[in-house]
């Protein structure tokens, strides 16, 4: 295990070194991706200047929802770069997975180490800025439990969305092409999570509660942090389901991944 981790770190340092070869374009990329995502928040902000609130959530409260999920998604997108379905499907098509299988190192560690897109810090930074704005305007009533639970929630978000990336990548064992429809739950999931769940139609909310339990990742924890009542009448422990739901997603995905990999080894695509 220690050997695997130290090798993973070496793989990552290689990635970082080759990305820093083109320093100017790197920083331009960081800046523009940050700006792109920020513009989405700005457009919501501007509309709220006219309208006041969305489903009873003020701009600062929305900023909390948005900022938290953006920081987590950016972090996930960086750590799980190798499992980005776009990246991984190309990886398979180029036959790079064969090289991975020929090395005496854990396969997952190698895929995690095969890409680490550092320029995602642009997205993370803008998320952090918005989150900072939220904290500055909200006056959250912090308790020790809240302070302890915040990092747990964000780690759960990273794990849950990473699981979806992995699931999307696993599909390319069959298709060899990227499965674009997975974007609906990955990028779409982030979009959905950045607003209060009550605004979505029942069926969509059901989908993101029971099939892909994203409502427990952001909305319910936010209710807890901001001491807002739950209009949907879920049990009181709902805000604390995030780590459980994320663990479950990761577990199921890993099983699926293993199944996909064994399928790859029997079809020789």
């Amino acid at each position: 295990m220690r050997r695997t981790i130290s090798l993973y770190l070496r793989f990552i340092s290689i990635q970082l070194r080759s990305q820093m070869q083109f320093r100017a374009s790197f920083w331009l990329d960081v800046f523009t991706t940050g700006l792109l995502n920020f513009s989405y928040f700005v457009s919501t902000y501007l509309v709220l200047e006219r309208i006041g609130n969305i489903a009873g959530w003020s701009i600062a409260e929305l900023a909390f929802l948005y900022g938290m999920i953006e920081v987590s998604f950016g972090t996930m997108d960086m750590i799980f770069s190798g499992f980005d379905p776009d990246v991984f499907s190309r990886f398979i098509r180029l036959g790079a997975l064969d090289q991975v299988l020929l090395r005496p190192v854990n396969v997952l560690a190698q895929i995690f180490g095969s890409a680490f897109v550092l320029r995602r810090i642009g997205r993370i930074t803008q998320g952090a800025v918005v989150l900072g704005f939220a904290f500055a305007h909200l006056g959250v009533h912090w308790t020790p439990l809240k302070l302890l639970y915040l990092p747990v929630v964000m780690a759960s978000q990273v794990a849950a969305m990473g699981a979806l990336f992995m699931a999307g990548s696993t599909l390319s064992f069959w298709t060899l092409q990227r499965v674009e429809a997975i974007n609906v739950v990955t990028y779409g999931g982030v979009e959905v999570m950045s607003y209060p769940s009550t605004i979505y139609p029942r069926w969509l909310r059901g989908f993101f509660t029971y099939l892909i339990p994203f409502v427990f990742m952001n909305y319910y924890p936010a209710l807890f942090f901001l001491d807002k009542p739950d209009p949907l009448g879920m049990p009181g422990f709902a805000p604390f389901l995030a780590p459980l739901a994320a663990g479950l997603m990761l577990f199921v995905t890993l099983r699926f991944w293993r199944f996909g990999l064994s399928r790859y080894q029997s079809t020789g695509t």
Partner: peptide, 26 residues
């Protein structure tokens, strides 16, 4: 394939955005 895939993505994002718009109007 790309056309169909793009269609699916654009469609669902449309639904998400429509929900936000509906909430804006309450």
């Amino acid at each position: 394939t790309a056309l169909i895939a793009g269609l699916v993505t654009n469609f669902f994002f449309g639904l998400f955005r429509a929900a936000v718009i509906t909430a804006l109007y309450h």
